[in-house]
Design a protein around this nucleic acid. Structure first.
Lengths: 244, 244
DNA sequence: GTTGGTCAAGTGGTAAGACCAATTTGAATG
DNA sequence: CATTCAAATTGGTCTTACCACTTGACCAAC
C-alpha cells in the first residue's frame, strides 16, 4: 500500500486554477472581461483577498491584463502565454493533446543537440565528473521513474555546461512542464531503462570538447526517447472518451 | 515634445520588484530564508496582504518556495527561473550583461532558422498575405523603433506558421523580454531600417514551402541584426561606471 | 455641436484586525 | 540522548473599511 503525502491546495491556488482553466479552456475570447473581483469572490464562495492573489498571479502570466478600475481583460494565451503554460496545454480534457506533445518532442530534438554542442565547446572536460556521476546513477537503477528523473538531471548538467542563460531558462521551463508528468509517463518509457550507452557516448563527446560529435550523439540520445515519448503521449491522448 | 502616459506602480508590484532584486542580485544563496511576511510588511511600511500578493507571485516564478508555517526559501534562480527572468538578468547594475546578451543573440541565431523552416513546411502559401502585409509596413517606415516592432511582428507571423506551441511559447517569453528594450536599442539598430530584402527573401521561401531555403534565408535575416544587437548591447553594457 | 466640469456607480488597490492552520523551536522528562 | 509537548512563529483566510481609478451620464458654457 503506497501512502502519499496529502497535499493541501490553498484557496488562492484553487481560484488561480479555475480562472486559468476558464481562460485557456473556457471559450473566453481575447478582449473579454473576467467577472469583477467581488463577483468572483461571491461566486466561488471565498474572500476577495484570495481572489486578488490569484488574479495578480494571472496578470503575471500575461494571460490577463488587470487595470485599476477597469477589471481583468483576457488576452490570447497563444500570443502571450509563456512556457509555464505548457503543462496546462499538454493535458486537456483528461488526456494528452497530441499536437502539444509533438511540439515538445520536436523542440527537444532540435534544441537538445544545439545545447550539447555548446556544452562540448564550452564545458568540455570540466563536465566529465558531473556527467559520469549521473551516468553511474543511471546505470544503477532499474526504476523507470528514477531513470527519467536522472535523465533530466543529466540534461541539467549539459545545459549548464552550455553556458547560455537563455537555454538554461528555457530548459527550466520545459523541465517544470515535464517533471509532473513523469509518474504518468514512466510506465510507457520503461523500455529505455538500462540503455546507458548513448548517454555515455554523449558524455564522452562533451568531455572531449568535440561539438560535432556531441551534436550527433545528442541526437542518438534523444531519438529513442522521442519515439517512446510519442508512443506514451499517444497512449495518454484522449481523442474520444478513452480514459488514460 | 513627447508626452508619455504616467504609469503608477502598485505597492505589491514594488514589493515584488524589491524581493526579486534581493533574490537575483542581493547575494541570497539557495536555501536561505526570506524575512517573514509580517517582517517584510513592517520593514517596507506596507500592509501584509500587499506582501502576500508579491510573495505569491514570487512563488509562481519558482525562485522561492513558500511553505505554510515555514517561510519563503530562496531557490537558485539559474536552476529554477524561467524566461520571464531574462529582462532582469539582461539589465543589471545600470547596464547590459554581455554574457546574457550574447546568449540571447545566439539562441535567436540557432532557433530562428529552425522556426522558419517549420513555417515553410507547415504554413507555406497560407502565410503569404500576413508576411507581405508586415513587409509592406516595414518598407513604409523610416523609424527605427517602429522597424523593430514590425520585425517582431514579422517573426510573430513566422512562429505562428511553424505550428509548434513550444516554439510559440518560447517566442512569447523572448518577445516579452525584448520589447521593453526596444526604445533603448532603437538608435543603435537604426542602420537596419530599410533593409527589407532579406525579409522578402525569407517570406518568399516560406510561401514557396521550401524549408531549406527558408532556413538559409532566416540566417540571412538574423545575421545583420545579430551583429547590430551585439554592438548595441556592447554599447549599453556597463563594465566600469560607463552610463548608457 | 463641442468642450469642460461634476457626480454616481462600479471596480481595483490597500490596510487593519482577528482568527485558523502548519511548522518550528525550546523546555521538560524519561 | 531521544522523545514529547507546549509555546512561538509563520503562513493562510476572512471581514470590514476606506482610498484610488475608470466609465458613463448629465449639465453648463462657449
Amino acid at each position: 500500500m503506497a501512502l502519499k503525502p496529502v497535499t493541501r491546495k490553498s484557496v488562492s491556488d484553487q481560484v488561480f486554477d479555475q480562472v486559468l482553466g476558464e481562460v485557456v479552456d473556457g471559450g473566453l475570447a481575447a478582449g473579454e472581461q473576467l467577472p469583477s473581483e467581488r463577483q468572483l469572490a461571491e461566486v466561488l464562495g471565498v474572500s476577495r483577498p484570495a481572489v486578488r492573489e490569484a488574479l495578480q498571479r494571472m496578470a503575471q502570466t500575461r494571460l490577463v491584463e488587470v487595470r485599476h478600475g477597469g477589471g481583468a481583460t483576457v488576452r490570447d494565451f497563444r500570443k502571450y502565454g509563456g512556457l509555464d503554460l505548457l503543462p496546462r496545454l499538454l493535458v486537456r480534457d483528461g488526456g494528452v493533446d497530441p499536437a502539444v506533445a509533438r511540439s515538445v518532442v520536436e523542440a527537444r530534438t532540435s534544441v537538445g543537440p544545439i545545447i550539447a554542442a555548446l556544452a562540448a565547446q564550452r564545458g568540455g572536460p570540466a563536465l566529465t565528473g558531473a556527467l559520469e556521476d549521473v551516468i553511474a546513477r543511471l546505470a544503477g537503477t532499474t526504476d523507470s521513474q528514477t531513470w527519467q528523473e536522472l535523465a533530466l538531471e543529466y540534461w541539467d548538467v549539459v545545459v549548464d555546461g552550455a553556458d547560455s542563460i537563455v537555454y538554461r531558462l528555457m530548459f527550466n521551463g520545459l523541465r517544470a512542464a515535464y517533471e509532473p508528468a513523469i509518474p504518468a509517463l514512466a510506465l510507457a518509457l520503461a523500455p529505455e531503462v538500462g540503455q546507458v550507452e548513448p548517454y555515455r557516448l554523449l558524455a564522452a563527446a562533451i568531455s572531449a570538447g568535440d561539438p560535432a560529435t556531441a551534436r550527433a550523439a545528442a541526437e542518438r540520445v534523444l531519438a529513442p526517447t522521442n519515439s517512446s515519448l510519442m508512443t506514451a503521449f499517444t497512449a495518454l491522448s484522449n481523442p474520444e472518451g478513452e480514459q488514460a
